[in-house]
Every structure is written in structure tokens, then in C-alpha cells.
């Protein structure tokens, strides 16, 4: 695992960020703060800007205003140091691509060149064991269920032992078994290893179990705070009603 950052620095600080796609405003003055060792749920409807927020954090889209800091550093440094891991939405994975589960997980170790082959094999096996898929390592990625594929993507993110983990809709299209594995692994990472997690989801049922804080998003932050206080019927109606009201 990377050397521990100074205490008190937020794991992730999205500070008054605005993102535009040409004339379209995707995020407006969004501030999200995730402390070290904290799990934060990001809740919003389709098109609310959740994925754009992840892309801004990862430096995939430019921020027109505001700044993003990951453990006190800008995204390029955080990525170079291996501080951040990312699990994409399930439908972003090319299921027909001719790679095995082990090939995919090993991609998580590509930062600054791969480690020696034996070490790679050991780390990949350990990551797959963690998501309960050690026996499927030789299978082509498309021959897994949607839930198993999401667990592989989590293993790929975990294999480099990041300090901050971003997950974009990891529970969408996932079977119950896989959802339980994902939640267990994430809870263990937060509680036992102090990893910080930002997870976007439609599935509100997993949030109280996993996240101590939540942010409701519809291009701007509608509410933020302890999960129990944020997930009120009024706030959810504003969030999924398109931010009106």
C-alpha cells in the first residue's frame, strides 16, 4: 500500500467544481468532501452528473471552475502514486475483448511498469480471492455474469492497493450474491484498512449499510451529510424529480 498521507487531509476534495460539455452545464459549483477512511454514497438520477464527477476527479474531463484534490495532491500526482482506484460501470466493459479474468486484474498493476511475473501472479491471485473469484481466473471476461464481471473490476482496482476508491454504479445489473460480496469487500476496505470510498448508486438499500455520508446530486449538490439525515423522502423526491422544488 502507498505510504499513509498526513491525517486531517481529506481523501477527496471536490471544491466548487463546474464542468461544461460545450454549451451544456454538466456540473455546477459542486463540492464533495470525503474524509480518510470514510465511505460516501453519491446518489442521483441518470444524467445528474455522477459519471461526470468521476471523470472530473480522474482528470478525464477539464474542470472549468474549481479544483479537485486527492489526498492533498492533484489527480495526475495521485494517479502516478497509485493512490486512486476506479471501478467503471458494468456496461463500459467490452465483454467480447479476448482477455482472461487474470489478464484484466493484472492491468491494475501496470502503473510504472508491471512487477516481476511471479509477483504479479501472486498479487492477482490474492485480489481474486478477495472477491471470491479465484477459481475463474482463466475464464474469458465475457463468459462471466454481470455481477462476476463487476467483482473482477473491483479486484483490478484493489490489486494496486489504492487509498481512494471510486466506484461508478457498481451494483447496477448485479446479482444478489455479487452485491453481497461487493458490499462486504468495500466495508472491509473502509473499516479495516482505512481506504476511502466514493460510490455512486441508484440502489438506496445498500447505502445505509455501506456509507456513513451521502451526497445527493443533480448537476449541483442538493444535500450532503450523514446518510440517515440526507436520505429523506423530501430530499429523494428533489433528487429524482430532476432537482426541482
Amino acid at each position: 500500500m502507498s505510504p499513509g498521507p498526513a491525517p486531517g487531509i481529506p481523501a477527496l476534495h471536490v471544491d466548487a467544481v463546474t464542468v461544461r460539455y460545450r454549451e451544456t452545464l454538466a456540473l455546477e459549483d459542486v463540492t464533495v468532501r470525503v474524509e480518510q477512511g470514510q465511505a460516501c454514497g453519491l446518489v442521483g438520477s441518470n444524467g445528474s452528473g455522477k459519471s461526470t464527477l468521476f471523470r472530473a476527479v480522474l482528470g478525464l474531463v477539464p474542470t472549468h471552475e474549481g479544483a479537485v484534490r486527492i489526498l492533498g495532491t492533484e489527480h495526475r500526482t495521485a494517479r502516478a502514486k497509485g493512490l486512486v482506484g476506479y471501478v467503471p460501470q458494468g456496461d463500459e466493459v467490452d465483454k467480447d475483448f479476448p482477455v482472461t479474468v487474470r489478464d484484466v486484474v493484472a492491468m491494475g498493476l501496470r502503473r510504472a511498469g508491471p512487477p516481476p511475473r511471479a509477483r504479479t501472479a501472486e498479487l492477482v491471485t490474492r485480489a481474486l480471492e478477495r472477491v471470491d473469484l479465484a477459481d475463474l481466473g482463466g475464464r474469458q471476461i465475457g463468459r462471466l455474469s454481470g455481477g462476476q464481471r463487476q467483482r473482477v473490476m473491483l479486484a483490478r482496482a484493489l490489486v494496486a492497493r489504492p487509498r481512494v476508491l471510486l466506484l461508478d454504479e457498481p451494483f447496477t445489473g448485479v446479482d444478489t450474491t455479487s452485491q453481497e460480496v461487493l458490499v462486504d469487500v468495500l466495508r472491509g476496505l473502509v473499516q479495516d484498512e482505512g481506504v476511502s470510498v466514493l460510490v455512486s448508486t441508484h440502489d438506496l438499500s445498500v447505502l445505509p449499510d455501506l456509507c456513513t455520508v451521502a451526497v445527493l446530486l443533480h448537476r449541483r449538490v442538493l444535500a450532503a451529510g450523514p446518510t440517515g439525515q440526507v436520505l429523506t423522502p423530501e430530499n429523494l423526491a428533489r433528487t429524482f424529480g430532476g432537482g426541482r422544488g
Binding site: 482528470g59 467503471p88 466493459v93 467490452d94 475483448f97 491494475g108 501496470r110 502503473r111
Partner: peptide, 12 residues
């Protein structure tokens, strides 16, 4: 080729 976003995340 497999995942451009992840390639970016790991610093390629």
C-alpha cells in the same frame, strides 16, 4: 484498447 479510462487511471 481494452479500457482507455483505466489505462488513464493507472498512468499510461
Amino acid at each position: 484498447a481494452f479500457d482507455r479510462t483505466h489505462a488513464h487511471v493507472v498512468g499510461l
